[in-house]
C-alpha cells in the first residue's frame, strides 16, 4: 500500500513540469497582451473600452481609439449565438440518443463532428451568400414592416449584414460543439434514472424533460464552450456583420466584433503609432470577457451544487 502511494507521488512530480509549462505559456501570453496595451492606456486611459471612436491619424496626438462598439457587438452576437444554440443543441442531442433509428445514429454523430471541424470560412461564405439574403427577406423585412416600434426590430434592414445574421450564423456554427458535450452527458446518464422516471408513469416528453435537467452541468459547460467559440470566431463573422462602428439595440443593425475588428485593422495598424496597441487592448478585453463568462458558469454550477 505504502509503495503505491509513493508511486503516485512520483508520477505527480513527473506531471508537474507539463502543468507548469502550459500555465506559464498562458501567463506569458497574458503578459504580452498587457505590456503591448500599455501605450494606449497611457495615451487615453480606459477610454479605449468606454468610447466608440476609431480615429486613425498621421499625427499621434490626434489618434484616438475606443472599441466599445466591438465589445458590444462581440457580446451581443455571442449571446444571440448561445440563445440559438441552446435549444438546437439540446434537441439535437436528445434526438440522436433517444429517437434516431439505430442506423442513422452514428452517421448523424459523424456529420455533426464534421460540421464542427469545417473551416469557418466555409460558414462565412455560405452565410454571406445564402443565410443573409434569406434572413433579410423572410425575417428582417417582415418584422421591420410590422413590428418596427419594438427597439429590437427598429433598424431598417438595408443590406442584411447585421448582429442577427452574425448571431444566427454563429449559433449554427457552435451548435455541434455544445451538442457534442450535451449528447455525451445525456448518453452516459445511468439507465437506472431512465427506469426511475418511466416507472413513475412519465410520458416520453416528461421523462426527457426530467433527464435533461439532470445533465444541467453538461449543458452549462456546453454553452460556455459555445460562447467561447462564438466570441473568438473571426472570419465568418466579419463576412456577415457589416463591420461598422455602431452600437444599436436593433438586431438588424450592422456592427463590429472584437475579433473581426482586429482581423480587419491589423494589416494597416503598423502605420499608426497607437493602433497596434489599441488592438492588443481590444484583444485583452476578450480575456476579461472570457474570464467573466467562466466565473458566471462556475457560479451557476455551484448553485446547482456541482462545482468541483
Amino acid at each position: 500500500m505504502k509503495r503505491e502511494v509513493g508511486h503516485i507521488d512520483t508520477f505527480k512530480y513527473f506531471l508537474l513540469p507539463f502543468c507548469l509549462f502550459v500555465f506559464g505559456l498562458f501567463a506569458l501570453m497574458l503578459a504580452v497582451y498587457f505590456s503591448a496595451s500599455i501605450p494606449i492606456f497611457q495615451h487615453e486611459g480606459l477610454k479605449i473600452y468606454t468610447t466608440n471612436v476609431w480615429r486613425a491619424s498621421e499625427n499621434p496626438n490626434k489618434e484616438f481609439y475606443g472599441v466599445l462598439a466591438a465589445i458590444y457587438g462581440s457580446v451581443y452576437t455571442s449571446v444571440l449565438a448561445v440563445l440559438i444554440a441552446l435549444p438546437l443543441s439540446i434537441s439535437f442531442a436528445v434526438f440522436v440518443i433517444d429517437y434516431a433509428p439505430k442506423k442513422i445514429k452514428e452517421p448523424l454523430i459523424v456529420a455533426t463532428d464534421v460540421m464542427a471541424g469545417l473551416p469557418t470560412i466555409i460558414y462565412g461564405i455560405w452565410g454571406a451568400f445564402v443565410l443573409v439574403p434569406i434572413l433579410k427577406k423572410y425575417v428582417m423585412d417582415p418584422l421591420y414592416a410590422h413590428l418596427s416600434f419594438i427597439p429590437l426590430f427598429s433598424f431598417k434592414p438595408v443590406t442584411g449584414y447585421s448582429y442577427l445574421s452574425a448571431g444566427v450564423l454563429l449559433g449554427i456554427m457552435v451548435t455541434p460543439f455544445a451538442s457534442a458535450i450535451i449528447r455525451e452527458a445525456y448518453r452516459s446518464l445511468p439507465f437506472m434514472y431512465r427506469e426511475a422516471i418511466y416507472s413513475l408513469g412519465a410520458t416520453r416528453y416528461e421523462a426527457t424533460k426530467i433527464l435533461v435537467k439532470e445533465i444541467k452541468p453538461a449543458i452549462v459547460a456546453g454553452l460556455l464552450l459555445a460562447f467561447g467559440r462564438a466570441i473568438g470566431e473571426t472570419v465568418a463573422v466579419s463576412l456577415v456583420i457589416g463591420n461598422t462602428f455602431n452600437i444599436s439595440p436593433s438586431l438588424f443593425a450592422p456592427g463590429y466584433t472584437i475579433s473581426s475588428l482586429i482581423a480587419n485593422q491589423f494589416g494597416n495598424a503598423f502605420i499608426y503609432k497607437y493602433m497596434v496597441s489599441a488592438l492588443f487592448a481590444a484583444g485583452l478585453s476578450l480575456f476579461f470577457i472570457g474570464l467573466a463568462v467562466n466565473i458566471l458558469g462556475i457560479l451557476i454550477l455551484r448553485r446547482y451544487g456541482h462545482a468541483r
Binding site: 445511468p190 437506472m192 434514472y193 422516471i197 416507472s199 413513475l200 408513469g201 412519465a202 426530467i210 451544487g305
Partner: peptide, 29 residues
C-alpha cells in the same frame, strides 16, 4: 402509464434524482 401508476417500483440501486430536492423527488410521481 396507467400500469406504472398502479404498480410502483423500487430498484436495486437507490435511484432518486440526485440533483432534485428531497421534496421534489417524492412529489414527482
Amino acid at each position: 402509464i396507467e400500469v406504472r401508476r398502479i404498480v410502483g417500483m423500487v430498484f436495486q440501486h437507490p435511484n432518486p434524482f440526485p440533483h432534485m430536492s428531497i421534496y421534489d423527488n417524492v412529489a414527482l410521481g
